[in-house]
Nucleic acid binder design. Sequence first.
DNA 1: CCGAATCCGCAGCGATACTG
DNA 2: CAGTATCGCTGCGGATTCGG
Lengths: 137, 137
Amino acid sequence: MTDVRTWALPATGADEHGPCGDEDCGIRDVLDRLGDRWSVLVLVELTKGVRRFGALKAAVPGISQRMLTVTTKRLVRDGLVERTVYPTIPPQTDYRLTPTGESLARAVADLADWSRRHKEVIALARARFDRDHPGEL
Amino acid sequence: MTDVRTWALPATGADEHGPCGDEDCGIRDVLDRLGDRWSVLVLVELTKGVRRFGALKAAVPGISQRMLTVTTKRLVRDGLVERTVYPTIPPQTDYRLTPTGESLARAVADLADWSRRHKEVIALARARFDRDHPGEL
DNA sequence: CCGAATCCGCAGCGATACTG
DNA sequence: CAGTATCGCTGCGGATTCGG
């Protein structure tokens, strides 16, 4: 082991500066909403019009009441969804997209289109990878 | 409690059918990638060109070595990123976007634009909500 | 320099039961 | 019908250590 190699590199000079682009680029704010399991699904469903709590629950199969309440509440908090409560005797609650919510929904729809167009390519890549590198990931 | 109200509703007739739209709509596949904390950031950084492991780590401030390895590996698995290893003596690894990865990065960039344009509106809505409904969420 | 392996806290989410 | 409260599990992700 007389070979001294101090782990020095020829220096690629690739010394970038900041976080991701120029500034703080608040992608995270949006992605934290889109990141959870349900927000997007609810958003998409509301694209089709006003929905009541139960209708949403029915339209988003896997979701639990709890997660639906939590999700809608977060969306309302961010000003993406508006909630209207009718104090009838079985209570009724309507959810609708705000203008902001609609514009986000459109942006998301574009991403959905992308995923539909590429889902097979991705599935194929995954299959390849899992075949060539079994046991990883 | 003689008042019998079986919790029946006037029937809104809002009986949607399937999961989210028409079919399975594989938004989830993509969102599961975008959902985690780092994939998008790495993707965006790679938009600027080929990057080595260390350069990525430097460009994505908060990330740990572990999460960078995990993230890149997942991206490679999905065929969004290509990995080139040079068996030099300190090893060198380059990451670059595949064509698929580039197209996804563009779609994501649109979403980033949206978030930048609306971040203040959202922040405002949140502040309002937290002020009017303290203790929730 | 690049990465694998281990340990561990904590948030997300589901299941269930209860209220108005 | 719409929503709250509590519990328990699971997996992401951070810190750290070891290896080629």
